[in-house]
Write a protein that binds this DNA or RNA. Structure first.
Length: 296
DNA sequence: AACCAGGTCCGAT
DNA sequence: ATCGGACATGGT
């Protein structure tokens, strides 16, 4: 087990549970205890697969986490997990910049430690094409189905897990397979996506590209509209200007900033770009989570 | 049992 | 440029 410290607060609950990434699940780490065969929780762990590594992560105070992993050793994995959870992001500075905003101020207090994640772009792209007009539990089910069916196996702590499949591993999958597995009308997009992405090479190169340029590349792909493109830009390509506008965020902005007037997605997006600039992606995730949790 | 879900695409104004 | 409907499926 290894400890990692964050630059400011980190909350696994809010980071992994706010609908950015879909391969994390709460893992109580059940361990047998007592003479009556009852089970007890061994802390509140999260279990997830990132690239080729399986992680078990738990909160270790407001600014630190502990983790184990495999098959990669912890020393080698530490910088990878640090990057994935963006533990180096200066959250206190972000809060200082945005705390003048009343709604964001409230959201940041309530969900302190919520960080954007830095996902693998290909997995993020497929995930959010799947996400279109769906819901979070179902999205997670589809992503897991793809991993188990087409991804390489990974052994960790006596259990078998799966990597998310590469474009090449998905390229042979035709529309009928996706239909049969409940992907609905997204089947047509997904069956074409791999083939079109392969010649683009490593999508992480888009992290160095200007925002609009990276966005154009994504928008040319099947099943990728403005919302999905902005999710990929925000959650995998370090593009802080991205502001994904879904039904929740549009409502939130209409009510909180738009005097309740009907606003188009374009209006909301441009308003956010003007107001938040390079902090737009973070602002969006706080507003999204705030709005979505509000009704529960 | 309707209604909605982290939308996109396409054809018609 | 913008608008409206079609598109599959499952959760609440």
């Amino acid at each position: 087990m290894m400890l990692l410290h964050a630059n400011g607060p980190i909350s696994l609950e809010h980071t992994l549970g706010s609908g950015q990434a879909f391969r994390w699940r709460r893992d109580a780490g059940l361990r047998e205890s007592g003479p009556h065969g009852d089970w007890r929780r061994d802390g509140d762990w999260w279990l997830g697969v990132v690239e080729g590594t399986v992680y078990r992560v738990r909160q270790e105070g407001p600014q630190a986490i502990a983790f184990t992993c495999g098959p990669l050793d912890e020393q080698a994995a530490a910088p990878l997990l640090t990057s994935y959870l963006r533990l180096d992001d200066d959250l206190p500075a972000l809060y200082r910049r945005l705390r003048g905003d009343r709604r964001l101020g409230a959201a940041m207090r309530q969900y302190e430690g919520l960080r954007l994640v830095r996902q693998a772009p290909w997995e993020c792209l497929v995930t959010f094409v799947i996400s279109a007009y769906s819901n979070i539990p179902r999205i997670a089910r589809h992503v897991e189905d793809l991993a188990q069916t087409f991804g390489d196996t990974l052994e960790f702590a006596g259990e078998t897990h799966h990597r998310f499949p590469s474009p090449a591993q998905l390229a042979e999958t035709g529309e009928p397979w996706f239909r049969e597995h409940g992907f609905g009308y997204r089947a047509r997009y997904l069956s074409r996506l791999s083939v079109l992405v392969m010649p683009l090479g490593d999508l992480t190169a888009l992290r160095r590209a200007p925002f609009q340029e990276a966005r154009s590349v994504l928008l040319a792909l099947p099943g990728v509209g403005e919302k999905v493109a902005d999710c990929v830009l925000a959650f995998s390509l370090d593009q802080g200007e991205a502001f994904p506008v879904d039904v929740h965020v549009r409502r939130a902005v209409q009510v909180w900033y738009g005097e309740g007037e009907e606003r188009s997605d374009r209006w909301v997006r441009e308003w956010a770009h003007e107001r938040f600039g390079p902090d737009a992606a973070y602002a969006q995730q706080y507003l999204f989570h705030y709005q979505r949790q509000r009704g529960r």
